[in-house]
Design a protein around this nucleic acid. Sequence first.
DNA 1: GTTGACCTTCCCAATACTGGAACCCTTATC
DNA 2: GATAAGGGTTCCAGTATTGGGAAGGTCAAC
Lengths: 136, 136
Amino acid sequence: MNIKDVAERAGLPAKTIRYYEEIGLIRPLRSANGYRAFRDSDLHKLAFLARARGLGFTIEDCRKLLALYEDRGRASADVKALAEAHLTQIAAKIAELRAMEETLSHLVHACAGDDRPDCPILKGLETGAETGCCGA
Amino acid sequence: MNIKDVAERAGLPAKTIRYYEEIGLIRPLRSANGYRAFRDSDLHKLAFLARARGLGFTIEDCRKLLALYEDRGRASADVKALAEAHLTQIAAKIAELRAMEETLSHLVHACAGDDRPDCPILKGLETGAETGCCGA
DNA sequence: GTTGACCTTCCCAATACTGGAACCCTTATC
DNA sequence: GATAAGGGTTCCAGTATTGGGAAGGTCAAC
């Protein structure tokens, strides 16, 4: 298979596939003309990578997951540990975003959004205070 | 004020402050010895930037916010529009992370996490299916 | 043989910093 | 005056993960 075929089937841009080869995630063969010649196993790995990346795993995590995927003697505990650590990071990121969302939505609600210059959002950014809409 | 003082007061690393100058967010004066000489107005801007960045605004959004902050004749609607667009992006990011979290936590819960190789997480990444724990 | 769709490598851009090297300035101490 | 500590400066390179595009080789069809 040439790169465009695997790209479509794995759901990854060709550019990304070349990059994954460059950093050693896959090692496709080469045809006589210099084209990459992907085996089914390469396609499987790329689809695996696409899904792992889609779940937010870093490339380095993907490298470890791929190694476990290929290791018939792996312990599922190792996979689970990786996934749990990643879940923890996802939860932390969500919490961070929610905090931003909360602060910012308070400010937005306090802002008239008209043609006058008075703006609680800018005031909040200036002073570090929120709108003060509900106490203190 | 020298850079270390403003860094502490604004809550930003000195490196970051130099970077902000490089990209034109601030324009501190220079002393005869070549040191940056920060005015109070520079400090205010840096603190403003630190808070805006803390709310997840991109640097380019910060640039616009700073321009509005400095424009005494701004319309608060412009600020609000920026903030609302950012809120939308935050919400989208949260939704994305939650989807990842949900999929991954299903897989994790289905995984025994012992020393055997059988692993629903790897299977899920291989096939694109979730655990199938609840139907289908 | 020419067109058009592939493929290749290589370099640059993006985000928002972060680290380090090499070197200059200031102040205090010996 | 020498030295050392603790500032400051610039410049280069790197992070993570692509995306864009140039310059050029290859293949299949007409």
